[in-house]
Design a protein around this nucleic acid. Structure first.
Length: 453
RNA sequence: GUGGUUGUAGCUCAGUUGGUUAGAGCGCCAGAUUGUGGCUCUGGAGGUCGCCGGUUCGAGCCCGGUCUCCCACCCCA
């Protein structure tokens, strides 16, 4: 075990003090807005029972779950002979790391339904894990910041959440583009081309239209078994352009025979009306090719991208009508959003949007001149702490040069030099590391000096 | 899960057609400066060249495998 190379698992990261200061800046901003809108915090465990998680994220999602091997003699009473690997792994693993915060939230709501006051507005900021291959903007451990309202059908909730999104990104100085769609519109489109069972294939394919282009999408649709006729009927849908209102009108005419489609259009219309008084700074755009989160979303779909950086979505969300149903609580509709803190961090770092000099250590450092002097400094230190000033004493009687370089590297602005002479005089020599000036003050004046900075 | 790419000092990287003792810059430590940081100068520590195997008289360099990093696909925050 000697000389082992230190390392951490694939797709995970360490965060140093500077990164933490910046990450906390993001978390604090998001948390502040959540609170202001009346959301209350909850936390759930990192691991859930596997059957809570399985089947909620589609086939792909199941593969991306991190499973936890049972502890103890986990082979006890199990005969692997003749078992499929899936059945075997179900026996070996009963727990898994959470994949997102929405499903654990749904589980929480059902489990604690007696204590919960509906409509329930909660926020939750915790890490999630996915056994994905890491790449740009993709990690195996990352933080989600979720806000959800459960127990209300009203589109006012969607409007509230969009307001939160807009406020958060304007506070963080990130220019955001909010894309909206409605799962019912997508269902309407599948109806319209006469293959409602192909809704997933159709939406997944048209989601790529901007990325791979029209012809490639058609090819994929054909491969997935969508009729040539259907593809032909799809064509005018992509040609829809203009302002949101125009798009909705055109779409309404095309989908006029699909009740579901018209309902989706109606919902978007109402939502846009609710958005007007909010006067959002972000661009809000109806995008009928937006097809995210099809696993449990049933109504509004939301996706946010940074306008000045290519990194995928930095926030996503939508309405789910029956997520709690799986856990035994029917007819409870919810809607939620999820900020991807790590991607927001990447965007802000790339665009240099972090405010300068986040204070990350003490404002004052006492230089150490030996035992007796240190004892004197400890009294002053306690007073400073009580007065709300962050201060520390250098722990060793090292050369002053070394102590000052240390303070310099940590951006500590004031150095208190309290040596024999100063203590005798009752005055402290205070060096300002930024200006280079040095003044003599009484211990009382020191607090004022620092607070005035 | 599929495809591509990377790996040499704490960090960023050089390293010739395989040839003795593997280099630089930055950082770190010490000194010039025995109570004053940043700048400068001098000196020093630090590497089984990702790991395993193969070819060769000889491998950081060539070959195979493996792990890792990053990128794309799938999917997603």
């Amino acid at each position: 075990m000697s000389n082992q190379k230190p390392s951490i698992p694939k797709g995970t990261r360490d965060f140093g003090p500077e990164e933490m200061a910046r990450r906390n800046y993001i978390f604090d901003t998001i948390r502040g807005v959540f609170k202001k809108h009346g959301y209350v915090p909850i936390e759930t465990p990192a691991m859930e029972n596997l059957d809570t998680l399985l089947g909620k994220y589609g086939e792909e999602g199941d593969k991306l779950l991190f499973k936890i091997l049972n502890s103890g003699d986990f082979l006890n009473g199990i005969d692997p002979e003749g078992m499929t690997s899936g059945a075997l792994s179900m026996k070996l693993c009963e727990k898994g790391l959470r994949y997102d915060l929405t499903v654990p939230f749904a589980r929480y709501v059902v489990q604690h339904q007696q204590e919960v006051e509906f409509p329930f507005r909660r926020y939750q900021i915790q890490p999630v894990w996915r056994a994905d291959r890491p790449q740009k903007g993709r990690y195996r451990e990352f933080y989600q910041c979720d806000a959800d309202v459960i127990g209300s059908n009203s589109l006012l909730n969607e409007a509230d959440l969009l307001g939160i999104i807009d406020t958060v990104f304007s506070k963080l100085n990130v220019r955001a583009k909010i894309k909206l769609n409605n799962r019912k519109i997508l269902a309407g489109i599948a109806d319209y081309i006469g293959q409602p069972e192909k809704i997933t294939d159709i939406t997944v394919a048209i989601d790529k239209i901007e990325k791979i282009g029209f012809d490639a999408v058609n090819q994929e649709l054909e491969q997935k078994g969508v009729s040539v006729q259907g593809i032909y009927k799809l064509e005018p849908l992509f040609a829809i352009t203009g302002y949101n209102q125009e798009k909705l009108d055109k779409l309404g005419r095309i989908l006029q025979h699909s009740a579901t489609g018209l309902k989706g259009i109606d919902e978007i219309k109402n939502l846009l009306a609710y958005l007007k008084p909010l006067d959002l700074k972000s661009t809000v755009e109806l995008d009928i090719s937006l097809a995210r989160g099809l696993n449990y979303y049933t109504g509004t779909i939301i996706e946010v991208k940074a306008m000045d950086a290519e990194i995928g979505s930095i926030c996503g969300g939508g309405r789910y009508d029956d997520l709690t149903g799986i856990f035994g609580l029917k007819d409870i509709s919810g809607v939620g959003i999820s900020f991807g803190a790590d991607r927001i961090y990447d965007v802000m770092k790339h665009l240099k949007l972090f405010p300068g000099e986040t204070d990350r250590s003490s404002q004052i450092m006492f230089a150490n001149f030996g035992e007796n002097e240190a004892l004197y400094c400890l009294t002053l230190l306690a007073k400073l702490h009580a007065a709300g000033v962050s201060a520390e004493l250098y722990p060793d009687n090292a050369k002053l040069k070394k102590q000052l370089s240390y303070a310099d590297a940590r951006h500590i602005q004031f150095i208190v030099l309290a040596g024999e002479n100063e203590i005798r005089e009752g005055l402290l020599a205070v060096k300002n590391m930024v200006t280079g000036e040095q003044v003599k003050v009484t211990p009382e004046e020191l607090v004022e000096l620092v607070k005035s900075e």
